[in-house]
Design a protein around this nucleic acid. Structure first.
Length: 476
DNA sequence: TTGTGTTTTATTGCCTCC
DNA sequence: GGAGGCAATAAAACACAA
């Protein structure tokens, strides 16, 4: 009895100690959470549960993280609003569109000031009245409002969710594909009990109609793809983005024959959190890529460079890895000189910062190659290979195949649907045993049907052939 | 090495909705 | 009343400059 009490007190003590000290999320967990947050600001209970299980966190932690993440969004939103307080409405819209953080889709019903239009409204409309599949919704999200939703959704507002989503690289970011696939998997959605929550919960159709009406009114003031409110922007002079950075501490990196210049990220590198940096990096790149009008001054080479630059940055954002590292712990805990050529001086050197550079306690174990890491890893290697020395075609094929298989293989929340899928999964395990992480649910993820071969699978279906060819040519 | 500032995480209380 | 969410707060972890 005494022994038992002792044991209990010991456990309590341990648990208290464990609870007392906050534990930092591992980079992989953060990335997964961020990615998930980009897709679902208000995850359902089941989603949280799944996420918690897969990230080896408690549901409480998950809930708390999402809560704080939303607060962070809101705070950023407020800051941006204050910083741009003098801007007129149109400018605010511009800023909102560009920053991706200008709006918050706070689910609270008591914060009317933040009641901006949210993708969940679209979601709400669809879920409430129309028989759209989850894939449709996902396409809607994934296309980042390139499809005009009533000619206003992409102009009047986008939530930080969708914008952050947009901020994330879509072609390169493996999470993107992965979570997207999760979203597109209707069955998975059903399994997850996908349903509107939070903000969406309290939004009735009448409200949607009202908001939509406002959005329409606002939206009409904008051109579909052009400047706002009739403001003409001068085309950027040719080479405007070719500022002579050389010699100013930003050393260009060379990939093949293409010179990549480090983006002007020194200003944001200083104090931004990992996630924020992640957003900023991508927003800067995506802001160029998303808006075709900005591309006026770009010739093909520049576009090419931009793509490669983005790819490089994505690589930098996703990892601080060195080649050959498979585990996320390796990736994040041991930043190596693999990118030293890119950041040579001290000020701009790409060192891990924030959580990316944080040490993790010994008891804080990384989820054993959760789906994100597992399937990210090959790409990391691929990118690194690509950046340091162009991979041989066989290398490419190898990684390509691996990536494809891994992406198909490690699809979170997907469940076995058929024997065929199980067979394929088994095959995938044989192909990539080193990434098989035991009986983790992710390890049982069946491959995806309708696999797309090669790099094309990394692209949203909305991408044109030209872009596909272009991307391929950039690789060439 | 140290002090300071920032970010992240955990906790608590309150509010709203069902 | 319970669940879910937001806001405020404290504290830990980290970055950075002196």
């Amino acid at each position: 009895m005494e022994e038992s009490n002792e044991l209990h007190s010991e456990e309590n003590k341990n648990s208290q100690d464990n609870n007392k000290k906050r534990k930092l999320k591992t980079p992989a967990q953060l990335m997964a959470l961020e990615k998930f947050y980009n897709e679902h600001k208000y995850p359902t209970e089941e989603m949280k549960s799944q996420l918690a299980e897969q990230l080896r966190l408690s549901e409480k932690q998950i809930s708390g993280w999402f809560c704080h993440r939303r607060l962070k969004d809101k705070r950023l939103s407020r800051d941006e609003t204050q910083a741009n307080g003098r801007q007129d409405r149109s400018s605010v819209v511009i800023q909102d569109r560009a920053s991706g953080l200008g709006q918050d889709s706070c689910g609270s019903t008591k914060h009317g000031e933040h009641r901006f239009v949210d993708p969940r409204e679209v979601e709400s409309r669809r879920l409430s009245g129309h028989d759209f599949t989850a894939a449709d919704i996902t396409r809607e999200y994934r296309s980042h409002y390139t499809e005009r939703v009533g000619d206003m959704d992409n102009t009047s507002s986008e939530s930080s969710s969708s914008l952050q989503d947009r901020l994330l690289t879509r072609k390169e970011d493996p999470y993107d594909v992965e979570t997207s696939r999760y979203l597109t998997h209707t069955k998975g959605m059903e399994n997850m009990g996908y349903k509107p929550s939070g903000f969406l919960k309290v939004k009735g159709e009448a409200e949607n109609a009202a908001i939509t009406a406002v959005k329409r009114q606002l939206g009409r003031q904008y051109w579909e793809d052009g400047p706002l409110l009739g403001v003409e922007f001068d085309l950027l002079p040719r080479g405007a983005f070719e500022s002579p950075i050389i010699g100013s501490g930003h050393e260009p990196s060379t990939i093949g024959n293409t010179v990549l210049r480090s983006p002007d990220i020194s200003g944001v590198k200083g104090q931004l959190s990992p996630s924020t940096r992640y957003e900023v990096y991508n927003s800067r790149l995506n802001s160029q890529q998303e808006n075709p009008s900005i591309m006026h001054g770009f010739d093909l080479q520049e576009k090419k460079s931009s793509k490669q630059l983005r790819q490089k940055l994505t690589y930098l954002n996703d990892t601080n890895s060195s080649p050959g590292k498979n585990s996320s712990l390796d990736i994040y805990d041991k930043p190596s000189g693999g990118i030293s050529a890119y950041n040579s001086n001290k000020k701009d050197r790409m060192r891990p910062k924030g959580n990316y550079g944080r040490k993790f306690t010994s008891e804080q174990t990384e989820p054993c190659l959760d789906e994100y890491d597992k399937f990210m890893s090959p790409k990391i290697v691929q990118r690194n290979e690509y950046l340091t020395s162009r991979p041989s075609s066989s290398m490419e094929e190898k990684f390509d195949g691996e990536c494809k298989a891994m992406k198909d293989y490690h699809n979170p929340f997907r469940r076995m649907n058929s024997i065929d899928e199980m067979v394929v999964t088994k095959q995938a395990r044989v192909n990539f045993p080193q990434r098989d992480c035991g009986t983790n649910s992710f390890a049982q993820m069946p491959p995806r049907k309708n696999q797309i071969k090669g790099t094309a699978m990394e692209m949203p279906s909305s991408f044109s052939e030209d872009e596909t060819a272009e991307t391929n040519s950039s690789v060439d």
